[in-house]
Amino acid sequence: MTTIRTGTDLAAVEDVVAGITAHGERYLSRVFTERERADCGDDPERLAARFAGKEAVVKLLRPAPDDAVLPTEVAVVLDTAGAPVVELSGRAAELAAALGCGPVAVSLSHERGLAVATAVALAER
Rank of each mutant, 00 (worst) to 15 (best):
T8K: 05
T8Q: 13
D9F: 15
V13C: 11
V13H: 15
E14C: 11
E14G: 05
E14P: 08
E14F: 12
E14T: 11
E14L: 09
D15P: 06
V16N: 08
V16F: 15
A18G: 06
G19I: 08
G19V: 09
I20E: 06
T21Y: 12
T21F: 15
T21R: 15
A22T: 06
E25H: 10
E25D: 14
R26Y: 04
R26Q: 04
R26W: 12
Y27D: 03
L28D: 01
L28C: 10
V31E: 03
T33N: 01
T33G: 05
T33Q: 04
E34A: 14
E36Y: 13
A38V: 08
D39L: 07
D39N: 12
G41H: 00
D43P: 06
D43G: 04
R46Q: 05
L47C: 05
L47M: 07
A49T: 06
F51K: 01
F51H: 09
A52Y: 10
A52W: 07
G53N: 01
G53M: 00
A56S: 11
V57T: 03
V57L: 02
V58R: 04
V58Q: 03
L60I: 04
L60V: 02
L61W: 14
L61D: 08
R62I: 03
R62H: 11
R62T: 07
P63R: 06
P63D: 02
A64Y: 01
D66K: 09
D66Q: 08
D67T: 01
A68E: 05
A68I: 09
V69T: 02
P71A: 02
T72R: 08
E73P: 02
E73G: 01
E73V: 01
E73N: 03
V74M: 12
A75Y: 09
V76P: 13
V76S: 10
V76Q: 06
V77Q: 09
L78F: 15
D79I: 12
D79F: 15
D79E: 06
P84M: 06
P84I: 11
P84H: 12
V85T: 12
V85S: 07
V86W: 11
E87A: 09
E87F: 14
L88W: 07
S89F: 15
S89V: 13
G90E: 04
R91K: 05
R91S: 01
R91I: 00
A93K: 15
A93C: 09
E94T: 14
A96W: 13
A96N: 07
A96T: 04
A98I: 10
L99R: 11
L99F: 14
G100W: 08
G100Q: 07
G100K: 06
G100Y: 04
C101K: 01
G102H: 00
P103L: 03
P103Y: 01
V104N: 02
A105S: 06
A105E: 11
L108F: 15
L108V: 03
L108A: 07
L108S: 00
S109N: 02
S109I: 02
H110V: 08
H110Q: 05
E111D: 10
R112Q: 03
A115V: 01
A117P: 07
L122P: 10
L122A: 02
E124T: 15
